[in-house]
């Protein structure tokens, strides 16, 4: 079973105050810590689990700069057999370009299963996986929260809204965009990462993939980023915990709930 997992290094922004940079095209990133995209962490774990169960070969691929190799070392430490970084050079790719580049790379590697995360934590597009699949003509499923492989087929469940799952059967090769909670990603030790840093990471240059010019043009143009309008929002309650509790109780009563 050949499995390819597409992963991304993203800035960790939960519990962080974000500030826009001067260009207003992005947030200031110099103080941010980079981590593996949460969804991708589940995807790589799922790949390793499949490999551990059925045997196989896991390749982790990322599109990024040299500093982003950290995410690949993490994947290697988790048990990936091979890692490829696609050097993005000066490109600042949007989802469609990422998908174009990654699909060109993935095409050249044998694969039965391709996994991606449902979305990335930074731009929240949620389409990279399906775009790759469509470019390669592969069958795919987004938001997969359970995956069982047997005899060239995958039994999957797809998370829909309202607590409903769709159960489907997919013939491999296929691409699945993995949802959080599908497994419990393992801990990756520092020693493991150190060990992994001895393994070779293959580097491919995005500009050398022979992609047509329009594939390397963004389909969306960022005009500006802006902070959410301040005006909307909650009336803020003040005071210590005790007085907050009093106010909350009062509001709940006012809204017709008896306590």
């Amino acid at each position: 079973m050949n499995i390819i997992v597409c992963v991304k290094n993203v800035p960790f922004t939960q519990e962080v105050d974000l500030v826009l940079d001067a260009s207003k095209q992005d947030v200031k990133k110099d103080n941010l810590v980079y981590v593996i995209n949460e969804w991708d962490n589940y995807a790589i774990e799922e790949a390793i689990r499949i490999k551990e169960e059925t045997g196989g070969h896991v390749t982790a691929v990322t599109l990024g700069k040299e500093a982003d190799e950290e995410v690949l070392r993490r994947c290697l430490a988790m048990g990936a057999d091979e890692a490829i970084r696609v050097e993005r050079g000066d490109l600042n790719p949007d989802a469609s370009m990422i998908a174009a580049i990654l699909s060109a790379v993935v095409k050249t590697i044998p694969h039965d299963i391709i996994l991606t995360g449902v979305q990335s934590d930074d731009l929240n597009n949620g389409i990279t996986g399906s775009l790759i699949a469509e470019r390669l003509g592969l069958v795919h499923a987004a938001v997969v929260n359970s995956l069982k492989i047997s005899e060239g087929k995958a039994q999957i469940s797809i998370e829909l809204e309202g607590g409903q799952d769709e159960m489907s059967q997919v013939t491999l090769p296929a691409l699945f965009a993995i949802q959080t909670g599908i497994n419990e990603p393992r801990y990756v030790s520092i020693m493991g990462i150190r060990k992994a840093s001895k393994k070779e990471i293959k580097v491919i240059d995005a500009s050398g993939l022979g992609l047509p010019g329009e594939d390397l043009q963004p389909s969306l143009i960022m005009e500006e980023m802006f902070m959410p309008p301040e005006t909307e929002g909650a009336e803020m309650l003040q005071g210590d915990a005790g007085s907050l509790a009093d106010q909350i109780i009062r509001i709940i009563r006012e809204k017709g709930v008896s306590l």
Partner: peptide
């Protein structure tokens, strides 16, 4: 033209199409 939320809704972005 569209407005999207990025960084889990902490930032908004205005985007145009090619």
């Amino acid at each position: 033209k569209v407005v999207r939320q990025v960084y889990s809704g902490k930032i908004f972005s205005r985007m145009a199409f090619r």
